[in-house]
């Protein structure tokens, strides 16, 4: 997902009777479905896990601007150009809400940004894949935003108030993103022979990376167990992946496109689609820096930050002059 493989405390969640009174009161609030707010007491592990998760989520939005930004200059009509620009701008906005929500836990946006730029913080593996033809703008909306929504809709009920509220707004925009992606896919799939070929090529390249977005199976993971007890993770990865395949397979059929998986078929018994797992070796390569675009993506973010230093410092210098002038007046 946008936050894949978030490490938690590394231990199994404690049972209520092994918790100290503060921890127990906190867990009981969560169990009752109450929201935790920034000034409330919280276990250090909860705070750290959330900062990591929200930071990864925010970084994914920011790095996620790049693959689609790659096509703004080449969008084929004035309307498509405006829609794509608005969409990529929304991703920047999502990054901003999420950094702001994470800042309520005591970590600054600048610190989180530095972790991203140095390569210490992760972001979603999906954004390390290239966008090679215009249909990729459709596939990213349809598949990538579609997969993101699967995870983000439940996160609207997450236990941390600022995160849950940010997700409500983000989900509204993501659902528009997914619809515009599917609209591009329809135009391409029902268009000329060349357009249909672009659409199929795009699905071929984005299918497995989209399945990887949910992360490897985590039903045995202690990190996930703790995050689920704290309600900062709502579903297991396999559950969401299955839901995504169930939703997407009929859509591909409607478009007349073939999902690149010979094993994909409806299973009458389970009433779900059977499908092949993505290549997890590739996934681990991508998240450890060896994806097709990791180098370009981080280089682009570092360049934006380094080239913009004079701008940020210039504005700070002006603000400090203004405040000195104000103080001198007083």
């Amino acid at each position: 997902m946008y936050a894949q493989q978030v490490e938690s405390t590394g231990s199994q969640p404690k049972s209520l009777n092994k918790m100290n009174p503060k921890e127990r009161a906190f867990q009981e609030r969560i169990d009752r479905g109450e929201r935790i707010e920034p000034k409330d007491w919280m276990p250090e592990g909860y705070r750290k896990t959330l900062v990591r998760q929200m930071g990864q989520h925010a970084h994914s939005e920011i790095v996620g601007q790049l693959p689609e930004g790659n096509w703004i200059g080449r969008a084929p009509t004035l309307e498509r150009k405006a829609i794509l620009l608005a969409k990529v701008q929304d991703e920047a906005g999502h990054g901003l809400y999420l950094y702001s929500a994470a800042e309520t836990l005591g970590k600054s946006r600048d610190d989180m940004t530095k972790e991203l730029l140095s390569g210490r913080a992760k972001y979603s593996s999906i954004f390390n894949y290239p966008t090679l033809n215009w249909a990729d703008m459709g596939a990213v909306g349809w598949l990538v935003d579609g997969a993101a929504i699967m995870n983000q809709v439940p996160l609207q009920r997450t236990s941390y108030g600022p995160y849950a509220r940010a997700m409500v707004r983000i989900c509204k925009e993501e659902s528009f993103h997914q619809r515009q992606g599917f609209d591009i896919m329809m135009k391409m799939s029902f268009g000329s022979k060349e357009q249909k070929a672009m659409a199929q090529d795009s699905l071929n390249r984005f299918w497995y990376p989209s399945l990887m977005m949910f992360g490897p199976s985590d039903s045995e993971s202690v990190h996930s167990a703790q995050s689920m007890a704290w309600k900062i993770k709502i579903n297991f990865n396999d559950e969401l992946r299955q839901k995504f395949v169930n939703q997407t397979a009929p859509q591909a059929k409607y478009l007349g496109l073939k999902i690149p998986d010979e094993n994909l078929k409806w299973n009458k018994k389970t009433e779900q689609y059977d499908f092949s797992e993505p290549d997890w070796k590739e996934f681990f390569e991508v998240i450890s820096g060896n994806g097709p675009c990791n180098i370009e993506r981080l280089a682009a973010r570092n360049k934006a930050w380094d080239d913009g230093e004079w701008f940020r410092e210039g504005l700070m210098a002006n603000a400090s002059k203004q405040s000195k002038a104000m103080n001198a007046k007083d």
Partner: peptide, 22 residues
């Protein structure tokens, strides 16, 4: 201007310049 989307010196500026472009 739209070529700056994703590359501006601050996040706020990225959003503002994209708005102007829109």
């Amino acid at each position: 201007n739209s070529k700056w989307c994703g590359h501006a010196p601050t996040l706020e500026e990225d959003i503002a310049l994209a708005n102007v472009s829109l």
